[in-house]
């Protein structure tokens, strides 16, 4: 299911209000979130598209979070689909990940195990002795 130009304009406006950008994080408009990033999410999870489309059909011009809230209250399930689409489009974006210092769920070496600092932390636990009940 592809979004119409009108749907995409509405989605773009919703995204700007819901993700305005702040404290070092880009806003939706800078990222053109309503285009390729949203399409990426819908490719991975196409089941979101019908509810998103219904929400956008109902949506008029939104100027504030208060306007979005009113739409959300009309159908919380459809709003949830919008939330999932926008949040994932945003946090899957490489720019945003870089801005918040998130490399994704990256691989690291687990064989380092516990070091001397960790074992030192355990000393008082060992010193208190057994706590199990017969």
């Amino acid at each position: 299911m592809s979004l119409s130009d009108e749907d995409r304009r509405k989605l773009d406006r919703l995204a700007q209000v819901m993700l305005p950008g702040s404290v070092g994080m880009s806003g939706a408009s800078e990222l053109q979130l309503a285009h390729a990033p949203v399409d990426r999410v819908l490719r991975i999870e196409p089941a979101l598209a019908p509810k998103l489309a219904h929400f956008l059909t109902r949506a008029g011009f939104v100027g504030s979070l208060g306007d979005v809230e009113a739409l959300a209250q009309e159908d919380p399930e459809e709003f949830k689909a919008l939330e999932v689409v926008l949040a994932n489009a945003y946090f899957m974006h490489d720019t945003v990940r870089g801005e918040i210092g998130y490399p994704g769920q990256e691989a690291r070496d687990s064989s380092v195990g516990l070091d001397d600092r960790d074992l030192a932390l355990l000393e008082p636990v060992r010193a208190r002795g057994a706590i199990w009940r017969e």
Partner: peptide, 9 residues
């Protein structure tokens, strides 16, 4: 919508 807007960031 309380978790959106500036509050999200």
């Amino acid at each position: 919508t309380e978790g959106w807007g500036a509050a999200l960031h």
